[in-house]
């Protein structure tokens, strides 16, 4: 049995998350239309791509964390550190070729979310590794010494103990994705979604892309641009503050 029950559960969970995101898009679009026309839809699109991209990046990041929690930092960490400096713009160019063109997903929120996941992959993997190492490595090592299998130690001891740190990594990844423009302008388009009802397969500007587009069209003084800037700042700052690392390790701040 290659597809275990847990794999099936994961698929079901993924489908549920997809459904929730689609439903969320419509609810939020309705509720937040008031501030400036079209802004509610773009806010919903921003949140949808951020949630989808986090869902896509979590399994590999946690997978790397589990595999390397008890190893000394080596070439994998060095490589991740090197590629974590890849400018978002470069990721966007690659995402255009991979997802929009080759995979045939077109300019869509799905392409955008995959692009954001690609951008956050090295950052999230490194962050998850640091989180599990700094918190519960010693307790886990004790359990390992007692002969408990590695996978169980990771699931039952390390994960619960480092949940807080992991959540903060996720929040910082969300903050990066939420304010990102370069990746999304090549993958999700620049027009707001209010023009027609559409789901995740449709293109829609997120707040950040729309703000860039309006400013570069010479319409940066309009109500829509200001509303975009306001939402971006409020939510971006909230995510960054909520995800700020506790005490000592400030290493990732601002990255």
């Amino acid at each position: 049995m290659i597809l275990s029950r847990r794999a099936c559960a994961l698929c079901a969970l993924g489908a549920a998350a997809l459904g929730a995101a689609v439903a969320g898009v419509n609810v939020v679009r309705g509720a937040l239309f008031a501030l400036a026309p079209g802004v509610g839809g773009m806010l919903a699109a921003s949140l949808a791509v951020v949630i989808l991209s986090l869902a896509a990046v979590a399994p590999p990041a946690l997978g790397v964390a589990r595999e390397r929690a008890w190893s000394e930092p080596g070439p994998v960490e060095a490589w991740l550190l090197l590629v974590s400096a890849t400018p978002a713009l470069i990721v966007g160019m690659t995402a255009l070729v991979w997802f929009v063109e080759r995979a045939g997903l077109g300019f869509s929120l799905v392409s955008g979310a995959l692009g954001l996941a690609l951008m956050n992959l090295p950052f999230a993997a490194l962050g998850a590794l640091q989180a599990v190492r700094q918190d519960e490595r010693s307790a886990g090592t004790g359990a390992l010494a007692l002969g408990v299998p590695e996978a169980r130690v990771f699931r039952d001891i390390v994960l619960p103990a480092s949940a807080g740190a992991l959540a903060r990594v996720a929040l910082r990844a969300a903050a990066r994705a939420f304010g990102e423009t370069a990746v999304l302008m090549f993958t999700a388009g620049v027009e707001p979604a209010s023009a027609s009802p559409r789901g995740l397969m449709g293109g829609s500007a997120t707040l950040a892309v729309r703000l860039w587009y309006l400013t570069s069209q010479g319409q940066g003084t309009g109500a829509q641009a200001r509303a975009c800037a306001l939402w971006l700042t409020v939510i971006g700052v909230a995510l960054a503050l909520a995800g700020r690392p506790r005490e000592a390790p400030v290493t990732e701040r601002g990255r």
């Binding site: 290659i2 597809l3 994961l10 399994p59 595999e67 995979a103 997903l105």
Partner: peptide, 16 residues
Amino acid sequence: AWRWLLAAAVLGGLAP
């Protein structure tokens, strides 16, 4: 983990 990867690959292949 290979099993998970396979599941992910199948999903990824079917997604488009």
